[in-house]
Structures are given as structure tokens and as C-alpha cells.
Design a protein around this nucleic acid. Sequence first.
DNA 1: AATATATGAATGAACG
DNA 2: CGTTCATTCATATATT
Lengths: 179, 179
Amino acid sequence: ASGEAMDERGGGEGLGYVKVMTDAQMEVLRKQISIYATICEQLVEMHRALTAQQDCISGMRLGNLYCDPLMVPGSHKITARQRWTPTPMQLQILENIFDQGNGTPSKQKIKEIAAELAQHGQISETNVYNWFQNRRARSKRKQAALPNNAESEAEADEESPADKKPKSDRPLHQNIATR
Amino acid sequence: ASGEAMDERGGGEGLGYVKVMTDAQMEVLRKQISIYATICEQLVEMHRALTAQQDCISGMRLGNLYCDPLMVPGSHKITARQRWTPTPMQLQILENIFDQGNGTPSKQKIKEIAAELAQHGQISETNVYNWFQNRRARSKRKQAALPNNAESEAEADEESPADKKPKSDRPLHQNIATR
DNA sequence: AATATATGAATGAACG
DNA sequence: CGTTCATTCATATATT
């Protein structure tokens, strides 16, 4: 039970169930991701091609901030946030690194990562450090929190076979233009 | 998708099983899609900005790739996630506990509370944890609001178990430039 | 229905 | 490091 204890949301009725997807639904999602991945790659490439020729339009760089790839998360960059929010691209990269298993990135590593991420948006080494700290802590917490809850009287709420460390599941399409 | 999971694993047993995903897995996918969606949006926008000046480079239009397709309706509606909603009974109990002043329900307490609430409806420890976090944070924020107003703030450690959901101040920052 | 508000959940940063 | 705080996001509910 409590497979993903720290993440499950109570459904509604007291009936203990595991929310699941059918193969068909899964297929839809897979396809969606695939489409996005493809489009992203194409767009990134296209962008490269375009910017490569931007030189001829010397004056028109839109300043230096010419909508650099995936700047600013939610929307456009107009809103100055006080706290850092990783851009999708940054997130992708971070997740990738995290999934590689090498736990606590050394100070040196942090620097490198930050440097790379800086190409995709504003970021500081502290941000990277915090991110890894949080990521790890939360991943851990998720995995815990399921030992005992047999005290639920009369509730046949116990099962959920698929339980594991939620860490190693690779989102089947993780990498795109990680550069 | 040929419907069911009749692929590998010959599963001769008459009971054809359905391959499914847990909530956690689903969440991963959802996030992935979300990220891609965002990246796509930004890339497209970026592309638009660039092509706007492309006139001098006429030959480089790359056709109309614009991933305008059915997806990316601005907000990725791929997977509407539902959230836990406390039953009146659960809410009552939670409020009671909260009003008892013990500001920080330790993990152990959380477990107990969750166990108790489970008798009145589906719930998880995370739900309880979140509830307290939010309750406290919002109670606090409310206090901080309108410091110098004729309204005296009979707040904090009052009782009134059945009381809840007072008026809200003005967050005034919900959505920003949402396209 | 469209908009506004309430509130569960996610998460960057800070604390001990 | 583990835990907590503060802020933000997304969705459920209420209001028009």
C-alpha cells in the first residue's frame, strides 16, 4: 500500500485503489512526448541556423538578450522573480545529471554544471547546489514513508505491488539538445 | 495501439492483463510533457521573433513548421491532475488539531493524524503535512496583512473549531503575463 | 460559461 | 543533511 505514499493524493471515496493508465493512454502520452521531442529538436536546430545568419543583420540582435533559448520559465521574461526558477532546458539537464546517479556533485562539478546551465538562462552556483540538495532530500523522502499503515481498520487498502525507488525511472525521452 | 498489452510476455493465462502505470510514473510523464510543451512554446515564440526580421534572408523560411498543432493549447492540458479535498469531517479534525496550538506536527504526529483521518476518507500523510504547512503559512500571512487598519485582528490562538475560511486579502499576483 | 477566490501541492531557499 | 519557511502554481469551488 502507499506505494507512492508521499505523492499519492487521496482520491475521493474511501475505496483504496491505485490510479493507473491503460496501455492506450500510455501510448498517447508516449506519442505526445515523442512529438514534443521532435519539434524541439527541429526548432533548436532551426534556431541555430537562423542565428548563424543573424550576422548579416548586425544591428538587429534585439540587444543581447535576443530571446535566448528558453529563457524564463512560465512566460516571458517580463516578470522579475525574486527566486530562481529553472528554465525547462535547465531542468532537463539537471535531471539528467541527477539521474546519472553521481550523488552530491563536488564543488568543482557544481561550477561546471552552473557554467553549462548559464547558457540556458540566469543561474548561480548556489542555485545548482540547492537544487541538488532539494532533489536528493525529496527523492529520499518519497521513497520512505510507507513502512506501516496497517492500522487502517477494515480497510482493504493494502496492496500496490509496484513499489520501488522512484529515482531510477528514466522518462523514456530524457535528452534533447542537452547542450 | 491495438488496445491492450498483448505484447511481449506471452501471458498465456486467459486473463489478459493490462499494463499500467502508478501515479508516480504518471507524474513523471506528465512533467516531461509539460517541460517539452514549455520549451516548444518558447522556441516557437523565439522563432517568430527571429523570422520577423528574416525578411532580408528570404530563402530561409523553413516552411510553416510552427508546432501549432492541436496540442500546446497554451497550457498543457495533457493530464489534469486531481487533488485531494478534505471531507468536512477531516477538515473539522484538522482545524481542531491546528487550533490546539501545537504548531509543528512532527512526522510521528502526522502519521497518527493521517491514520485517524483515514477513517473518514481517503487521505495520505502528505496531504496532512501539506495541510498544516498551508494552514500555518496562510494564517501567518493573513496576520501580516493590513497592519494599520481599523480592523483589530482577533487572530492567532483563538478557538472556533467550526470556523474557517475567512476573507482573504489581496494576493494580487496570481497570473502574470499569461500570454 | 466566464471570472474570481480558496486551497492543495510543488519547490527554491534558509535554518539548525 | 534533514526539516522548515515562503512563494508560486494549478485546480476545485464559488460567484456573476
